[in-house]
């Protein structure tokens, strides 16, 4: 495996840019969706302060794992690097998460 990685790294990757874009888009959608759902769940369960953010990052970790599993653990055949699956868009959903977290938390626990 290691030798293959090395020789593959020597070659410029052969990637269809449009397909890559569409894959990245679906990752973005799933992460946004998950951050909204996660926010609602965190609010209903009444997480506050640090716990909520930990919950968000756990959701994102689970999302990364799920995406990796969906890509059959070979990122190379769908993306140009592992970071696309593991890291991209993690912080982008944070604002949505906070919004829906606050909303659900207020409705369930405050009023």
């Amino acid at each position: 495996m290691a030798t293959q990685d090395r020789s593959a790294a020597d070659l410029p990757a052969i990637i269809n840019a449009e397909n890559l874009q569409s894959n990245m888009k679906s990752i973005y959608y799933s992460r946004t969706f998950l951050s909204i759902i996660g926010g609602v769940v965190a609010g209903i369960w009444g997480f506050t302060s640090f716990t909520g953010f930990v919950f968000y990052f756990m959701v994102m970790l689970a999302a990364s794992f799920g995406l990796a599993a969906k890509a059959k653990f070979s990122a190379g055949s769908y993306f140009d690097s592992w970071n696309r699956i593991l890291l991209d868009g993690i912080l982008g959903g944070l604002m949505s998460f906070v919004l829906f977290w606050t909303f659900a938390y207020d409705i369930v626990h405050i009023f």
Binding site: Y28, Y29, T32, F33, I36, G92, M95, S96, V98, L99
Partner: peptide, 13 residues
């Protein structure tokens, strides 16, 4: 403000 920033993801969905 929270809505302003947080709804962006919602809109894209």
């Amino acid at each position: 403000f929270l809505n302003l920033f947080g709804l962006r993801g919602f809109f894209s969905l």
